[in-house]
Simulated assay, not measured.
Amino acid sequence: MQTYLSRRGAFLLFAVIVIAWGLNWTITKTLVQSVTPLWTTAFRSGIATVALAALLFARGEMIVPRRGDLPVVFVTSIFHLVAFSALVAYGLQFAAVGRSIVLGYTTPLWVMPAAWLFLGERMTPSRSLGMALGLAGLTVMFNPLAFNWADVNTLAGSGAILLAALCWAVSIVYVRAHRWISTPFQLVFWQMLLATVVVSVLALLKDGVPHPAWSAQLAGLFLFSGIIGTALANWAMSTANRSLPAVVTSLGLLATPVVGVASSAIVLGEVVTADLVVAMLLILGGIAIGTIPRREKTPAQKHAPLVVES
């Protein structure tokens, strides 16, 4: 069932997506203070799996993946929904949200050279410039004069977030090469189900049976993250993407780190330093220059998979 919105409706829906994804980083930072990173990822994935199943059944889009789509289900689930999500949750134990979300959104910078190496995509001057600006932003973030290299926890947290970004890049590059049979949204449930099983087993082996101190606030944060920030956001993104130009969605997603930085400052009282602002502008500017499409996507390209936040 295809859903098309008016331009105004699509913009409003897209704004909700960006806000939800930006807030999700601050929410995850709060969750990992009460629940281990692996169980945080498992609980959120489980809630999202149930919500996605209900949504797909309600829309009549629940399917069993065809054999040709099984590799993309596996790769996306393991590298994005398991590795990326768990590493981000681990990193947020130690690193500030503002710093983490900017590092997490360096993913497109790693996709550019990987796509050139493995998919034969041209490394155009704009992509080279975008890479240079993004790396300059990372240099600002890890400037010895501004970064405390003696802080082992912050260093480990930042390293985990960067590794998460690389895992996400692996998923994106594979997704670009995949020949889709079903729509990406129809497969998200199966990706999330596999991720829930895998990360739950890992959490049980590493952390044992969880005993969180449940409260209305903790339950509410998990429900928001799983239902709004993951399940409904994926549906909303697939809907908005069909109703808005590709350049709008590509540029609009760059607002997510800005929302994350702002929410962490307002909710958690994190200090937004000058070097973080400069680094964010350089990295997001580099992504915009290097990855924004220069022309409208064809209908076939509109069917291509989206960037999925988790």
Rank of each mutant, 00 (worst) to 15 (best):
M1H: 06
Y4K: 14
R8L: 15
G9A: 13
L23A: 10
T28H: 03
T30C: 11
T30P: 09
L31N: 06
V32C: 10
Q33R: 14
V35G: 04
V35L: 14
T36A: 14
P37G: 09
L38H: 07
L38V: 02
W39T: 01
T41L: 12
A42H: 05
F43K: 03
G46D: 09
T49L: 12
A51W: 05
A53M: 10
L55D: 02
L56Y: 03
I63Q: 04
V64I: 13
R67F: 12
P71F: 08
F79M: 13
H80E: 12
S85D: 15
A86R: 07
A89Q: 10
A89P: 03
A89T: 00
A96C: 05
V102A: 13
L103T: 02
Y105N: 12
L109Y: 04
W110L: 13
W110T: 10
A115K: 04
L119F: 11
M123C: 08
M123H: 00
S128V: 10
L129M: 15
G137T: 00
P144Y: 08
P144G: 07
L145S: 15
A146F: 15
A146C: 07
N148M: 12
L155F: 11
A160W: 00
L163N: 05
L166S: 11
V170W: 02
S171M: 06
A177D: 08
F185R: 00
Q186I: 02
F189S: 01
A203K: 01
L204E: 06
L205R: 01
D207E: 12
D207C: 10
V209K: 03
V209M: 15
Q217Y: 04
F222R: 02
I228Q: 13
M237P: 00
M237H: 02
M237D: 07
V259E: 09
V261Q: 00
A262N: 00
A265M: 07
D275C: 06
D275Y: 14
V277M: 13
M280F: 02
M280Q: 12
I287P: 04
A288R: 00
A288G: 08
G290Y: 04
G290K: 08
P293H: 14
P293R: 09
R295V: 01
R295E: 15
A304N: 14
